[in-house]
Write a protein that binds this DNA or RNA. Structure first.
Lengths: 232, 232
DNA sequence: CGGTCGGTTGAAGCTAATCAATTAGAGTGG
DNA sequence: CCACTCTAATTGATTAGCTTCAACCGACCG
């Protein structure tokens, strides 16, 4: 791959601060691949051979054990995944699959680690990136431990409502079974949770959710910057 | 504080790789404090002004919301906490309190960040540290999502049994209410969970737990390197 | 027009939390 | 040494929250 094929990559946080030559070298070693939907990109337990960057499409990170499965996160453009495993030269803790047609940049792990050794600014940028990841998982963990399913849904709605312009409407970005798993519940329970939110002005129509009474929804949800805010 | 007051600090991962002068400077700015039990060291939402290093004793990291409280981790010598918040110059996502008499080193956040800018080896060591933290939380998250309370207890027992020499005995390192919260359950439920493990050779006597049938306990627990192993 | 798939609804059951009462242990002071 | 706390831990009864299984509905598609 040529380094100027993806100018937006250069704007991405860990790569922005990189020296030009090192970035060029990284991009030279990288593969840009197109995948259809439902392709298994990595499997938990496998060694982390590549850092993945989602350029287009959507990737689901999930984990399995004891016959159960849990979606841990969705990665959308432009986001990367399994950085921690690559840095530690370890096995992946989660699996990843595309949920739709996707363009994905795969950068060999050893090249990432080489750039990390050579480029001080890159190394420092990765610290900030990883610190952000860490804090994001801590928030997810708190969300799960400290809230019921209905509360998690209510806060999720408020967050995406804000993201999407706060027009009293939320467009669900994935199908409901996926949303259910992200929120740590079954699809049936998500259906019922939407039902119990009806008295709080929440009405669902397919993938569109109308929020008519934000005030009472917030009273129920009790949003918390230390859980819900992406930037904090 | 003088830099040679705590030779064991120098052996700690992020500090080991530091240049001598930078380490000396950091230690010079740091405070070594003695605290009694049950002292609130930090509160979630407050700005992260110090990096904390537990030299002696034990510190509980916890979070609160909606009238609920969850213990997120216990930090024992020699371990640090709130590194991510310090690096991001952000607010703490968790609170911390001592659970017993403790000696704690407090390093001002701006000195950590200054050392991070100056010392390339230190910056790189922090990446590995944060990557490890990240993976630890992901494992905790999976533990919570993919297992029942009894399974979490069974795996916790097997892990600590291994740690403590695999002699068929486990000594509980904290009181049971704390253990319950670490495992994401109520004290009552922990009691009952020990009860349901009785047929699997688990007998409790105060803080001592005897494991008489490791095989059947493992069949129940289904330990998983991608959740339970500390190093992976 | 049957078939499939995502979603919803209902009934039943299970896991875990809650509330209340009791017991067990570890000091404390007479 | 023995009552007397005070707290941790256990036990029982009940309820809440969530899952599971099954049936059903409606949209989209060959």
């Amino acid at each position: 791959m040529r380094p100027d094929d993806l100018p937006e990559m250069r704007e991405l946080e860990p790569f922005k601060s990189m020296r030009e030559e090192n970035f060029a070298e990284l991009m030279h070693a990288a593969f840009l691949q197109n995948f259809p939907a439902q392709v298994q990109l990595i499997t938990e337990g496998d060694h982390a051979d590549f850092l993945f960057v989602v350029i287009e499409g959507c990737v689901e990170l999930y984990a399995q054990a004891n016959g159960r499965e849990a979606v841990l996160a969705m990665v959308r453009p432009i986001g990367s995944f399994i950085l921690a495993a690559v840095m530690k030269d370890a096995v992946n803790l989660m699996s990843a699959r595309t949920t739709g047609k996707s363009r994905i940049l795969m950068i060999p792990a050893q090249n990432i680690r080489a750039a990390f050794e050579k480029d001080d600014a890159f190394a420092r940028a990765i610290v900030i990136e990883l610190a952000g990841y860490f804090r994001a998982v801590v928030k997810e963990y708190k969300n799960l431990r400290l809230r019921t399913a209905v509360e998690r849904l209510a806060n999720w709605l408020l967050k995406y409502h804000k993201d999407q312009g706060a027009e009293g409407m939320v467009e669900l970005p994935y199908d409901k079974r996926t949303l259910a798993s992200i929120l740590g519940m079954t699809p049936e329970n998500l259906s019922r949770a939407f039902g119990t939110l009806k008295p709080y002005g929440v009405s669902v129509n397919g993938g569109r959710v109308k929020l008519d009474d934000l005030e009472s929804l917030e009273v129920l949800a009790k949003p918390n910057v230390l859980i819900d805010e992406r930037t904090t």
